[in-house]
Simulated assay, not measured.
Amino acid sequence: MVAKDMGYEYNDGEFMRIIYDMYLDVLVYYYKFKGVQEKVIDKQVIESNEGPS
C-alpha cells in the first residue's frame, strides 16, 4: 500500500521493503559500531593515563 501511495506499482512494494530493510541494517550496524568504538577509545584513554609515570 505504501508503494502504491507513493506512485509506484503495487508489485514494487516488496522491492521497496527489501531496500528499506537493507537501509535499516546499515544504520543498526553503524550505531553498534559507534558504541563499540567509543568504548575502545575510552579504554585507550584510561590505559594511557594509568601507564608508568
Score class of each variant (00 low, 15 high):
Met1Ala: 05
Val2Trp: 05
Val2Tyr: 06
Val2Phe: 09
Ala3Leu: 00
Ala3Gly: 03
Asp5Ala: 10
Asp5Met: 06
Asp5Ile: 03
Met6Arg: 07
Met6Gln: 08
Met6Trp: 10
Gly7Tyr: 01
Gly7Met: 01
Gly7Val: 02
Tyr8Met: 04
Tyr8Glu: 04
Tyr8Gly: 01
Tyr8Gln: 02
Tyr8Cys: 02
Glu9Cys: 02
Glu9Asp: 11
Glu9Pro: 01
Glu9Gln: 06
Tyr10Asp: 10
Tyr10His: 02
Asn11Ser: 12
Asp12Ser: 02
Asp12Pro: 00
Asp12Met: 02
Gly13Trp: 00
Glu14Pro: 01
Glu14Met: 09
Phe15Ala: 13
Phe15Ile: 07
Met16Asp: 02
Met16Gly: 03
Arg17Pro: 00
Arg17Thr: 14
Arg17Leu: 14
Ile18Arg: 12
Ile19Val: 14
Ile19Cys: 04
Ile19Leu: 12
Ile19Asn: 02
Ile19Lys: 07
Tyr20Glu: 10
Asp21Trp: 04
Asp21Ala: 08
Asp21Pro: 00
Asp21Glu: 15
Asp21Phe: 04
Met22Pro: 00
Met22Glu: 11
Met22Leu: 14
Tyr23Asp: 04
Tyr23Lys: 03
Tyr23Asn: 03
Leu24Ser: 09
Leu24Gly: 05
Leu24Ala: 09
Asp25Tyr: 06
Asp25Pro: 00
Val26His: 04
Val26Phe: 06
Leu27His: 08
Leu27Ser: 05
Leu27Ala: 06
Leu27Tyr: 06
Leu27Lys: 06
Val28His: 09
Val28Ile: 13
Tyr29Met: 09
Tyr29Val: 08
Tyr29Leu: 12
Tyr30Lys: 08
Tyr30Asn: 09
Tyr31Asn: 09
Tyr31Ile: 07
Tyr31Pro: 00
Lys32Phe: 10
Phe33Met: 05
Lys34Met: 14
Lys34Trp: 10
Gly35Val: 04
Val36Arg: 15
Val36Trp: 15
Val36Glu: 15
Val36Asp: 15
Val36Gln: 13
Gln37Phe: 13
Gln37Arg: 08
Gln37Pro: 00
Glu38Pro: 01
Glu38Gly: 07
Glu38Asn: 14
Glu38Lys: 15
Lys39His: 10
Lys39Leu: 12
Lys39Gln: 14
Lys39Met: 09
Lys39Asn: 11
Val40Leu: 15
Ile41Leu: 06
Ile41Thr: 11
Asp42Ile: 05
Asp42Lys: 14
Lys43Val: 03
Lys43Phe: 09
Lys43Glu: 15
Lys43Arg: 15
Lys43Trp: 08
Gln44Val: 13
Gln44Gly: 03
Gln44Asp: 12
Gln44Ser: 11
Val45Lys: 14
Ile46Lys: 11
Glu47Gln: 08
Glu47Gly: 00
Glu47Lys: 04
Glu47Ser: 07
Ser48Arg: 13
Ser48Val: 03
Asn49Ile: 07
Asn49Tyr: 07
Asn49Met: 14
Asn49Gly: 11
Asn49Trp: 05
Glu50Gln: 14
Gly51Gln: 05
Gly51Leu: 03
Gly51Ser: 11
Gly51Tyr: 02
Gly51Ile: 02
Pro52Ser: 07
Ser53Met: 03
Ser53Asp: 07
